[in-house]
Design a protein around this nucleic acid. Structure first.
Lengths: 112, 112
DNA sequence: CAACGAGTTCTACTTTGTAGAAATCTTGCC
DNA sequence: GGCAAGATTTCTACAAAGTAGAACTCGTTG
């Protein structure tokens, strides 16, 4: 990762999806959230690979299935955002804000 | 690049720096802008490599040195953001906005 | 038990991100 | 003119992130 906690673009998207999904954050669901909200295709492999990287960076933790209820279904891996993950997210947002601050694009209006 | 015009994190930062610098966007200056505004180290090699990639994607165009004034100094390569580049930037911002919309982090307040 | 569906793992590869030294070109100075 | 110095770009090499899609697992159901 090099220097400070840098977040790749997709990593950020996945992290945000996990944050939003809360108790319901597991692979397939995360993927659906991304495709739905971001309107961007995401293959399941990409999602998991990214999740692994986030776990390695300690931005996301695995486990903590919701409310003890032993679900009858399949073995799902649930994820939650860690404090460090939240900070990384906030840092990314701040950086974003600083870089955009006061910037006016010369206007790429779509043709009417 | 795969699917649609996706922008990597650093690519986005560089592109924003070029947009902001306007007529004064050339390697060293871009680097300084990034270090200053983003508060993030950027080696000159990284900046140029990224610039090349942005040119290849047609998000940035090379040339168009400001106002004909033959500067006495060195041969600088100036860059400007293309329409496509502006769109990519706007798309990235929109995506960002959608992913953050209404999201509340559970609060990683720093200890007092 | 075989087909099925929901989920996760794996494998292989392309793009991006980084670092830092090397090469260029100008200008100032002796 | 030759040479050091400063500004700037180019090159080389490699690590990290992004992607795709097939394979594999394990309950459920007919």
């Amino acid at each position: 990762m090099g220097r400070s906690g840098y977040l790749g673009e997709f990593e950020q998207i996945v992290l945000l999806a996990v944050a939003r999904l809360g108790e319901d954050a597991y692979g397939m669901r995360i993927r659906a959230e991304i495709e739905g909200r971001a309107g961007r295709k995401a293959t399941i492999g990409a999602v998991y690979a990214t999740l692994e990287r986030l776990v390695a960076k300690d931005y996301v933790r695995q486990g903590d299935a919701p409310g003890g209820e032993e679900r009858s279904g399949l073995a799902r891996r649930f994820f939650t955002v860690t404090r460090a993950g939240e900070s990384a997210l906030e840092n990314a947002r701040d950086l974003q804000t600083r870089m955009w601050a006061g910037l006016k694009l010369r206007g790429a209006r779509r043709r009417s």
